[in-house]
Each structure stands twice: as C-alpha cells, then as structure tokens.
C-alpha cells in the first residue's frame, strides 16, 4: 500500500517535463550532482568540526560553545543547498530513487540525526558554560556527537551506494529486500 503510493507519486513526477529535462541534460544534472557532493565540504565539514570539538579531538583549546555557535550558520547554509540539490536529484530520477534501499536507509537515518541535533542543542543550553573551556564536553553531549559522526558517515556511504545497481528492482526477486526497497510486483517502469 505504502510502496504503491510512493511508486504512483514517483511515476507522476517522472512524467513531468522538467524531470525529463533535468535528467537528460548532461551538464545540468552533473552540475546539480556536483553541487550536492561539494556542499559536503561546507555542511558536514562544519558539523564534523563541532562534533570533533565535543569529543576533544579538534580545536580543544577553543571554547566549545564558540565553535558550535559560530559554525552553525555556515553549516545550515550548506545543509540548505544540500537539501535543495538532493530534492532536485530525486526529482530527476524519481522512480529509481524512490525504490532504492540505500535512499530509504539514508532518509530514516537523516530523520534520526535531525532528532539528535535538536536534542544536542537542548542539552547544550541545559549544560551551561561551566565545561566550555574543557577539552571534552560532558558525557551526554559526547554521545550525541558520536552518534552524529557515525550517523552522517553512514548517510554519506548510503548516498554513494545509491549510484550502484546492486539492489535495483529489476534485478531483485520478490522478497523482504525487494519489499523494503519498495519494489512493486509486475512494475514496468524503473
């Protein structure tokens, strides 16, 4: 039911003129994809610095709250560009993207990481500034930073794996994996 609904929306998107134009345009598609990948340097670059600071592995003698506060804005700008280009990439190839197991893992993880980020900021304001000059943040903030680092690393890996056709619907027999990927029995468009 859920998979059928997603598939119907993907087919509808795929039939739009702009979707075809985007994925048929060699330069436009590659520019969007390159921007999506290169924005890693801004968004994840800033995020990794914040997380590594919390763990005491980077910039340990710079106050942690300064790092988190000052690098937040460029990180969010990077994430915004990343989300926009990510949506465009999905729109360019909607059927295959919506039926990618890697895309689904990536989206679930990103939801978890979003919740983690909200909790992290709440814990940070609750923790006060007594630990600010310490090389390592309090334990609950370190756990949040570790989850963030590991989670985003898996997100990047899943994003890379989307490009490979190991679990594409046309190569899978019906079963658990096929259903998790969102494959529809008898579908003719991939």
């Amino acid at each position: 039911m859920f998979n059928q609904l997603i598939h119907n929306i993907a087919i509808w998107l795929d039939d739009t003129r702009w979707s075809t134009m985007l994925h048929e345009s060699y330069y436009m598609y590659n520019w969007v994809e390159s921007t999506h990948v290169l924005t890693l340097m801004v968004s994840l670059g800033m995020l990794f610095l914040i997380d590594l600071r919390m763990l005491g592995l980077a910039l340990p003698d710079v106050p942690a709250s300064t790092i988190a506060r000052r690098l937040n804005l460029p990180m969010l700008v990077g994430f915004t560009v990343m989300v926009v280009t990510g949506l465009l990439l999905f729109y360019a190839v909607p059927v295959r993207s919506s039926q990618s197991i890697w895309m689904r893992i990536k989206l679930v993880l990103m939801l978890g990481l979003l919740i983690n980020a909200v909790l992290f900021h709440r814990r940070m304001s609750e923790a006060g500034s007594g630990w600010d000059a310490q090389p390592r943040a309090p334990r609950n903030l370190r756990l949040g930073a570790m989850f963030s680092l590991a989670g985003w690393s898996v997100v990047v890996t899943c994003g890379r794996f989307i490009a490979y056709d190991w679990f594409d619907c046309q190569y899978m027999d019906p079963g658990l994996m096929s259903s998790l990927a969102g494959c529809i029995e008898g579908q003719t468009r991939f």
Binding site: V37, L40, M41, V42, S43, L44, G45, M46, L47, F48, L49, L71, P74, S153, V156, T157, R160, F161, A163, Y164, W166
Partner: peptide, 24 residues
C-alpha cells in the same frame, strides 16, 4: 565493487573534513 564504493565514501568523508578545516 562494494569495497571500491566504501573507499569512495571514506574519500568523501575525508573531503568533508578537509572542507571544514579549510573553511574554518
């Protein structure tokens, strides 16, 4: 292929870290 793709991912993570260090 999976090994190659995983190494590509680590390459991207290294790129993110480099971007963070350069931009900061």
């Amino acid at each position: 292929g999976a090994v190659f793709a995983t190494v590509q991912s680590v390459h991207l993570l290294g790129l993110a870290l480099l971007g963070g260090a350069v931009l900061a």
